[in-house]
Amino acid sequence: MMRKLFVLLWALATFAAAHAQAQSPAVSPGDINAAGELRMLSQRLAKSYVQLGLEVLPAAALDQLQDSILRFELGLERMQALTVAVPSAGPAVGRLRSDWSALRTVVAEPADRTRALLASQHSLAVLDGAERLVAALADAAGGGDARRIGEVGRLRMLSQRVVKAYMLYSWGADTAASHREMEAAADEFGRGLAAVAALPGTTADVRAELAEISLQWEWLRTALSVEGAGSYRLVVAEAAESILAATDRLVRLHEPPQSR
């Protein structure tokens, strides 16, 4: 009798553990958000480095650069730990670590036009690795929330990439390529904003945040279009931080309530 009871209790415990594991996926919305933040930090770091070279808000740019390095490395360690539960993310994390090391080496030296352009090139390699990581984690999560957070989170990255390209362009660093990157990132931001606004189940808080971002974006887009106005570098740099803060709030509004 006791043996049967023991077997029954063991079976119940095993079922409960398996059920709990099924209810707690290896990849959480917070993990997707953290991976998506690495995309943004790659471009924020490069943008801040270019700003330092241009001496546009240099104290703030240095703070942003150091903050980006710290946050990226913390996020990278989180992603490395996650590969234990999600082995499919391992190759993306390995590549990301290698590309990140190359970018860090470049920005350790004082910025000039040549090194700023090199930093941008390395930042795009890091961005590509982070995109692959987000995709791998979204596949592992297998849910709509993960993909939605990934899509909304791209706006954070684009807010930094477009300004990084603008700064390079205004500095005369490979002007044709920098201008193409700026225009492409700006167009993608506009399309992304419209796509997020069209997502089903949008709340009043999300709509309010989207309206604020749209206003800020139109103002920034106007500043980006002014040719040869070096004084607009300051305006654009400040606008980038405002839009980044707003898009970060937007991402968090799309996280499931239990994961915030």
Rank of each mutant, 00 (worst) to 15 (best):
S88Q: 03
S88A: 09
S88Y: 04
S88F: 09
S88D: 10
S88G: 07
A89M: 04
A89I: 04
A89S: 00
A89C: 01
A89N: 05
A89D: 11
P91D: 01
P91W: 08
P91Q: 08
P91F: 09
A92L: 00
A92D: 06
A92M: 01
V93C: 00
V93F: 09
G94D: 14
G94A: 12
G94T: 10
G94I: 11
G94H: 12
R95G: 14
R95H: 13
R95F: 15
L96T: 04
L96W: 09
S98Y: 13
S98I: 14
D99F: 15
W100N: 01
W100R: 03
W100I: 00
W100A: 01
W100Y: 12
W100D: 08
S101M: 13
S101P: 04
A102W: 00
A102V: 11
L103K: 09
L103M: 02
L103F: 08
L103Q: 04
L103D: 08
L103E: 09
L103R: 05
R104E: 14
R104G: 14
R104T: 08
T105D: 11
T105N: 06
V106R: 03
V106N: 07
V106L: 10
V106Q: 01
V107S: 06
V107T: 10
V107N: 11
A108V: 10
A108K: 05
A108G: 11
A108M: 08
E109M: 11
E109I: 06
E109R: 00
E109W: 03
E109T: 09
E109C: 07
P110G: 04
P110I: 11
P110W: 00
P110R: 12
P110H: 08
A111S: 07
A111H: 10
A111G: 04
D112M: 10
D112F: 09
D112P: 03
D112T: 10
D112E: 05
R113P: 08
R113C: 15
T114P: 02
T114W: 06
R115Q: 12
R115C: 05
A116K: 02
A116Y: 01
A116F: 08
A116M: 11
A116V: 03
L117H: 04
L117T: 08
L117Q: 07
L117D: 03
L118K: 09
L118C: 00
L118P: 01
L118R: 02
A119T: 04
A119V: 05
S120Q: 12
S120D: 12
S120F: 12
S120P: 10
S120H: 12
S120K: 02
Q121R: 15
Q121A: 15
H122L: 15
S123R: 04
S123G: 12
L124W: 00
L124C: 14
A125E: 03
V126H: 05
L127N: 06
L127V: 02
L127Q: 02
L127D: 02
L127A: 01
L127E: 07
L127M: 07
